[in-house]
Design a protein around this nucleic acid. Sequence first.
RNA 1: GCGACUGUAGCUCAGGUGGUUAGAGUGCCAGGUUGUGGCCCUGGAGGUCGUCGGUUCAAGUCCGAUCAGUCGCCCCA
Length: 422
Amino acid sequence: MYDVLPYPSTKEPWLTTARWRAVERHFREMVMRAGYREIRTPILEPTELFKRSIGEATDIVSKEMFTFVDRGERSLTMKPEGTAPAVRACIEHGLFAEHGLLKLYYIGQNFRYERGQKGRYRQHQQLGVEVFGAHDPAIDAEVLALAMNFFTSLGVRCKLHINSVGTAECRARYREALKAYVAPSLQHLSEEGKMRYEVNPLRMLDTKDQRDLAILAGAPVLRDFLTDDSSKHFEQLQGYLAALNIPFAIDDGLVRGFDYYSGTVFEIKGEGLGAQDALGGGGRYDGLVEECGGTAVPGLGFGIGMERCLLALEALGIQPPQEDESPIAFIITAGEQPAVRTTAVTLLHSLRSSGIAADMDYLGKNFRRQFKRADDLGSRFYIIIGEDEVASGTVQLKERTTGEQQKIDIDSVVQYLSGKAL
RNA sequence: GCGACUGUAGCUCAGGUGGUUAGAGUGCCAGGUUGUGGCCCUGGAGGUCGUCGGUUCAAGUCCGAUCAGUCGCCCCA
């Protein structure tokens, strides 16, 4: 768990709201250019939704969900990922019927009950897209290209790993072949491997255990069990990626931790991130909508880890362009007459109403300290109001960088600064 | 869920083998006449030493537990 702060801390510079907004804006602009529309779904969903979609035998569902019973005896779960809730919402609101092709994006919080680590948090944010309705491998290419472009345009170096897990039938045939291959060596498999053999054989491939890797070295490859259609789809995708100059590596062991994937799957790995190096991942889930109670609509998408992206940027010393949060003008008051403060408060309000970022002191600081406050905030102009100015209906307007100061009519301040603020 | 390491002002860190009122730098606040800022000078506030328990005449320091964080396993974003 962590807090995102308004000011940078020396310890965790990436945990600042300005930096988060910068990355979020980068993502939003990119996907909106590509025609994606935002969807927001609730944090709480019926537990059943995730059991059905992600699969009961996966790590996420079996041991990593924040699940509880509410006062109405319903089992609810804080969403561990964004795809299933999006599918649920689209079914519920008839979006599939209304749009032949549906392109969605989301920025949302996910929750997984895991041991915290750098780059792995019990609450984490994902930036993702989901596309529904298309089988065309060109849309697979679009989705992968978006995910890769998100990182490369930020300056993050990363590698794209792809694979195809085929249709449910492909996987069923492969599962048997894999089990048959491993069966003679079953006793030599790690405990984890043995468990996966029983519960979710495909996950045996996703191991780092040296002995298991040795046993699996000559195992049959899932890709050889793909139907002609699946094979062709995967090859076409590779052709598009090549045409787009997106380097990729085919990873036979890439299986992913959700059961709903079919066909294309991929993962993006960053460099120098330690154990948690998966920056993002996703794939195709052609059976998911039907599984969740909708019509047969194909789909695919990806999720990008916000924290890992920020960590990668931090490690590379990259600062995405941030919004300027400094005021344009800071009002400084002098003198004890109540009219001075009233004039200042009124002018401040006018400036802000006209879209000019402005501020003033509320701590009763003396004249000199008010200047210091304005400097600390990075204000471009000082507006000085004293008893003389109030009497003559003017203000002293001083520019910080040049030190130039002029007396101008108080009624023309807004107009003057509007010109300068551009 | 498993293993290793860490835990002292807001932040970065000092505090040999247990011994009086726990320090520094930085930041913060104030003052250097509330009519001209950045620098500078002076002063001040701020810590039940992660928490609980134990050993001891005495614990920031030793022991245990617990929590949190970091790193690795696992998994993934």
